[in-house]
């Protein structure tokens, strides 16, 4: 199948089946199905408010969803639950353990401002993996080197530029050695220069075989980094395929609106 070239070559690492999520009466995701290959970079596009962030947050249970399930390497790691059902202590522990499969990078970085850069990156290994300090330090050093920021390790995070903060955010997630990285508009509060520097980090991660789900509004970014693109609309995946397929060969009306919107924005910003 020409539409999903990557999946045919690689084993599926993540599968989302029939995921439904409502906020109160408002249905946001209405049966999302998704397969992600190991080492694949999947770009998630869609109009504002279509539920892209919500989808990522459901994957690592920052949001609970009501129906469907998520499987990692064929093993179900979370299931929808009817609203209002309580969690036992054991459920909570399982939830914490399952979040470790995912590394999350936030739009607004969410670094811990009261901890130095190195302590931000060490916070997961020390508190969650219970690593001894020197071992965690080594892990954090490697992660910071990977994003090219080792020399900033003793700094306070808020003294760094946005691009640097985001790279620390990536290092902090990498230090937990996740199976899949989730990026939620990780460059949309950055200027073009800083976007570039974060982009380089993402590309290097991709070349090392990291599986990544990337939510973005930046179509160039999507084109350059995505192995495959899914377009979410009205709570479901309405189109998917390679970037060429989605953008040039067969853009759906929704995709076309997005392309035109972004052209319009570019023109505005140039004017």
């Amino acid at each position: 199948m020409e539409q999903t070239p990557f999946l045919n070559r690689r084993e599926t690492i993540l599968e989302v089946r029939g995921l439904k999520k409502s906020f109160g009466p408002k249905r946001v995701l209405n049966g999302v199905n998704l397969k992600v290959g190991k080492g694949e970079v999947l770009v998630i596009l869609g109009p504002n408010g279509c539920g892209k962030s919500t989808l990522l947050r459901c994957l690592n249970l920052l949001e609970k969803y009501q129906e469907g399930e998520v499987a990692l390497r064929g093993e179900v790691i979370s299931r929808g639950r009817p609203e209002g059902s309580g969690l036992s202590r054991q459920d909570r522990a399982v939830e914490c353990a399952m979040r470790r499969h995912f590394g999350m990078v936030f739009q607004r970085f969410n670094l811990f401002p009261h901890l130095r850069v190195i302590d931000n990156v060490m916070s997961g290994p020390i508190n969650v993996l219970r690593m001894p300090r020197d071992e965690a330090f080594e892990v954090a050093r490697k992660a910071l080197c990977k994003v090219g920021l080792w020399e900033k390790h003793p700094c306070d995070p808020l003294t760094l530029s946005g691009g640097q903060q985001q790279r620390v955010g990536i290092a902090r997630a990498l230090a937990m050695n996740p199976d899949i990285m989730l990026f939620d508009e990780c460059t949309s509060s950055l200027d073009p220069m800083m976007t570039k520097e974060v982009f380089m980090v993402l590309r290097e991660l991709a070349s090392e075989g990291m599986t990544m789900l990337v939510v973005t509004h930046d179509l160039d970014f999507a084109r350059e980094i995505g192995d495959r693109v899914v377009f979410i609309e009205n709570g479901v995946v309405s189109a998917e395929g390679t970037p060429e397929h989605i953008f040039e060969a067969k853009p759906t009306p929704g995709v076309r609106a997005l392309i035109e919107g972004s052209l319009y924005e570019t023109r505005l910003s140039r004017a």
Binding site: R100, N110, S123, G124, V128, R172
Partner: peptide, 21 residues
């Protein structure tokens, strides 16, 4: 910022750790 708690949870910390640390 609630994002602080979420960042902590996303690393695998428990609610208690996110709160106290």
């Amino acid at each position: 910022d609630p994002g602080q708690r979420e960042a902590a949870l996303s690393l695998g910390m428990s609610e208690r750790q996110a709160f106290f640390i």
